[in-house]
């Protein structure tokens, strides 16, 4: 079947099997391999992307269901080569180690900051509670999001995109 979507601002279309998962469509058909996968039961959140402005687990969305939607992946976080404050925050505060959960974590963080520019620790922890990280013990992810909150200038424009 034919699907069309806007991925990181680019129109894409392809002929796919109806059963193709969105995560595989992004990774294999579009070769956007920044979106990872880590389980089969929708528990780990490694595959998180934005669909129509909302973070979702792309292993639990069919590419067919996403047809007509806007998708944003980690590859769409930076603007004109300039890192999003969330990306910079993860670097500055050592919010990543192996890097595998990182794209999903950053996308949840960006969404949180767009809706709550100055979140407290509990709100940050809640926002990423559907995503597992095995390396950081979450502490530096929380610090990275706080860093990004303190250094964000982009949330206004982002909200328009995600609305």
């Amino acid at each position: 079947m034919q699907v069309n979507m806007l991925v990181n601002g680019v129109e894409v279309s392809d002929d796919i099997e109806p059963r193709l998962l969105l995560v595989h469509f992004l990774r294999e058909n579009l070769r956007l391999t920044g979106t990872h996968w880590g389980c089969d039961t929708s528990n780990c959140g490694t595959c998180t992307v934005w669909m129509d402005g909302t973070p979702v687990k792309s292993c639990t969305v069919l590419a067919a269901m996403a047809s007509g939607s806007e998708i944003m992946t980690v590859e769409g976080l930076a603007t004109d080569g300039e890192l999003d404050p969330v990306q910079q925050g993860f670097i500055e505060m050592h919010g990543l180690q192996c890097g595998f959960c990182t794209p999903g974590m950053m996308l949840s963080a960006r969404w949180l900051l767009d809706h709550n520019p100055d979140p407290n620790e509990e709100q940050i922890r809640e926002a990423i509670s559907g995503q597992i990280c095995r390396c950081t013990g979450y502490e530096n992810i929380v610090r990275a999001v706080k860093w990004a909150a303190a250094h964000s200038q982009k949330s206004d424009t982002r909200e328009e995109v995600g609305a």
Binding site: R27, T33, G34, H36, V74, I91, L96, F100, T102, M106
Partner: peptide, 13 residues
């Protein structure tokens, strides 16, 4: 980190 935060790591899959 430069590659990881951009989704440009290269893992087995």
């Amino acid at each position: 980190d430069a590659r990881f935060v951009r989704g440009k790591g290269s893992y087995i899959d």
